[in-house]
């Protein structure tokens, strides 16, 4: 009897330990998200300006000089219609640092939006790949899964993705959205003579026909995040117009 009681006490202690650890992570998570939200708002407020607005068009001016003073890893600004994606993009020296660090380089469990470190942003990248966490609250790339819905796909306004770098503003037109088991193929950034085959494959994967032609002369943008099961990826490809 005593043994049973002892086991119950041990179990209670273990359960309390699990609750403590989980609670700590949950607190960190929400604290991190809140901090990221504040950083995001501060960036949009201070460094991103709508300089020209017509009924058909909104143009943005990004103060890269100031942003680079905040974080020299800044490489661009990304906005995707029909999602919450509206972030400055950084590029680390690898693809892991910004998984756990925010724009201000402080530890943050939700990380930040970052480009594949292989991308050079010299105007000649054939495939610019951008990653972000699939967060529960929809921040970062938590809303990228919207692209898998029919509602998002059938709204043509969503098919244009804005990506601004120091070289200027670019509009990308979406040509493929899908989920795939985690792999390295679609995040390739170096191509020899296989780019046409590459775009052919990733276009065929799409669950929706965007009726956009892509060929070996195009440059593309890839957005990637995990699904909730963590073993698949939600992927969007768009070609530069």
């Amino acid at each position: 009897m005593k043994t049973v009681k002892r086991l119950k006490i041990i179990l209670i202690i273990l359960l309390l330990l699990v609750m403590t650890l989980s609670g700590h992570k949950i607190i960190l998570y929400y604290k991190g998200n809140k901090e990221n939200e504040e950083i995001k708002n501060e960036i949009i407020e201070n460094y991103i300006e709508e300089v020209e607005t017509t009924e058909e068009e909104v143009k943005y001016e990004v103060d890269f000089e100031s942003l680079k003073k905040e974080n020299p890893d800044t490489v661009g600004y990304l906005k995707v219609n029909g999602t919450n994606i509206d972030y400055v993009v950084v590029k680390g020296s690898d693809n892991s640092f910004y998984l756990k660090h925010s724009f201000n380089r402080s530890y943050n469990i939700s990380g930040w939006i970052f480009a594949d470190f292989h991308n050079q942003f010299n105007g000649y990248d054939k495939n610019i790949v951008i990653f972000g966490h699939n967060t529960l609250d929809g921040s970062m790339f938590g809303s990228l899964k919207n692209v898998l819905t029919k509602e998002w796909q059938e709204n043509t306004e969503n098919h244009k993705v804005l990506f601004i770098t120091e070289d200027g503003e670019s509009i990308y037109e979406v040509f493929s959205v899908y989920t795939v088991l985690s792999e390295d193929y679609y995040i390739k950034t170096q191509f020899n003579d296989d780019f046409d085959k590459f775009v052919e494959i990733i276009k065929k994967r799409s669950i929706y026909d965007f009726k956009v032609d892509v060929d070996e002369n195009d440059k593309i943008l890839t957005l990637s995040t995990c699904t909730s099961d963590r073993i698949h990826r939600v992927v969007l490809h768009a070609k530069k117009l």
Partner: peptide, 29 residues
């Protein structure tokens, strides 16, 4: 470093689930 497709999944589901299960079991005990 080993690079590849980064793990951008969110562990919050596991943490919340763990907390909830532990809490329920604790209450039952």
């Amino acid at each position: 470093s080993i690079t590849g497709n980064p793990q951008t999944g969110d562990l919050i589901y596991i943490w919340i689930g763990s907390f909830a299960v532990a809490f329920i079991v604790l209450v039952l005990i």
